[in-house]
């Protein structure tokens, strides 16, 4: 499409504390898992170059702190995001219930131009843990994601590296699409005051 020197895709990972946001990012970027990740304070990001079809893009992945109050820190960096990954822990019902709140929070803070078409992706993490401990079934999760507006859903294990690559592949493709579409709305998202939310996000009232 438009001629760009370098395609930068900005991706934000959100979700409750302890669901494995840092682990997912590390697994995708560095192909490793550690038992020694510390709780994330503030925000952190990693970048990764990856090929999409015939072009190479740089993906900039932002890892965030999961505790609610960290939303009071500068969440300005949500703006200009091309995709948002919502993570929950399949063994933790509460983290699943928070998904909608995280989605709404993101839409408010990021001030995206067309909330209904903005690409989200939901990841149910920690499927490596004992099946008996699992509290959110695939069926239930898939159903909710449909209600959220046909959001793609993946189940992963950041620990064992299961499905992580696949999930991020969809992330990168959807993000690229969004980035290209974003160009047309460039004027809009420079305007911090203008929040297009009221009444527009009709499809996420589940």
């Amino acid at each position: 499409m438009s001629s760009r020197k370098k395609t930068l895709l900005k991706v934000i990972i959100l979700g409750d504390s302890g669901v494995g946001k840092t682990s997912l990012m590390q697994q995708f970027v560095n192909k490793k898992f550690s038992h020694q990740y510390k709780a994330t304070i503030g925000a952190d990001f990693l970048t990764k170059e990856l090929p999409i079809d015939d072009k190479t893009v740089t993906m900039q992945i932002w890892d965030t702190a999961g505790q609610e109050r960290f939303q009071s820190l500068g969440v300005a960096f949500y703006r200009g995001a091309d995709c948002c990954i919502l993570v929950y822990d399949v063994n933790n019902a509460k983290s699943f219930e928070s998904l909608l709140a995280w989605k709404d929070e993101f839409l408010i803070q990021a001030n995206v131009s067309l909330p209904e078409t903005f690409p989200f992706i939901v990841i149910g993490n920690k499927i490596d843990i004992d099946e008996n401990k699992r509290v959110v079934s695939y069926k239930k999760a898939a159903q909710v994601c449909q209600q959220l507006g046909n959001v793609p859903y993946f189940e992963t294990s950041a620990k064992d590296g299961i499905n992580v690559e696949e999930a991020f592949d969809v992330v990168s493709r959807n993000a690229l699409q969004q980035e290209e579409a974003n160009d047309e709305f460039n004027d809009d998202y420079n305007d911090a005051i203008n929040i297009h939310l009221d009444g527009e996000a009709g499809n996420c009232t589940c």
Binding site: I41, G42, G74, A76, F77, A192
Partner: peptide, 11 residues
């Protein structure tokens, strides 16, 4: 509108 770097210095 604190500069983005404050995300890092906050910690």
């Amino acid at each position: 509108r604190l500069p983005p770097v404050t995300l890092c210095t906050a910690s």
